[in-house]
């Protein structure tokens, strides 16, 4: 008996026959070829694998495919199609918040959810929301600056 796992992925209804005990990050990257979601630590510590699960930041390395059943998943590729992404990527670019870029998709996912729920976060709120996203290159000041830039520029984008 093959079990189908169905969920919404970047706005589309999808199903997979893959084993329920695959990690979601592996299914996204290897089966759906959505390689924008990165694996850094694989232990829930770094946020490189951040997706939005029912709209909220979630660690795709720390959940099984089976736990994604009937849920709504957005990856950086899904966000890319939105105007919000354009604002965020330009802000990260202009603030110099990207060096190797490995942490950036996760940072952008977290930022998108933060600004949707809190359109005007101060420095403390930005740092609190981003506390689970690690960057090995940039230093966090530029990243916080990028988020602040996005706050100023986003208007009614999302």
């Amino acid at each position: 008996m093959t079990k189908l796992t169905s969920f919404t992925l970047n706005g589309e209804f999808v199903s997979t026959k893959s084993a329920l005990d695959l990690r979601l990050v592996d299914v996204l990257r290897c089966e759906f070829n959505l390689t924008g979601t990165k694996e850094g630590c694989g232990e829930g510590e770094c946020g490189a694998c951040m997706i939005l699960l029912d709209g909220h930041p979630a660690l795709s390395c720390l959940m099984l495919l089976g736990a994604a059943k009937d849920r709504d998943i957005l990856t950086i590729e899904g966000l890319r199609a939105t105007q919000g992404f354009a604002v965020l990527s330009q802000a990260f670019n202009d603030a110099g918040a990207v060096q190797c870029g490995f942490c950036t998709p996760g940072m952008i996912m977290t930022t998108y959810a933060l600004l949707r729920d809190n359109p005007n976060p101060d420095d403390g709120a930005i740092r609190a929301a981003m506390a689970g996203n690690l960057c090995r290159c940039t230093g966090y000041s530029m990243i916080v600056e990028a988020v602040s830039l996005a706050v100023q520029r986003r208007g009614e984008t999302w």
Partner: peptide
Amino acid sequence: PYAGGTDFMIRHAKALQTGQCPPFIF
């Protein structure tokens, strides 16, 4: 049992890599 999975995934990390994960219930 698998609730949020945050301890489950760490405890069974090795087993998950080799397809040896014990049976589970969500």
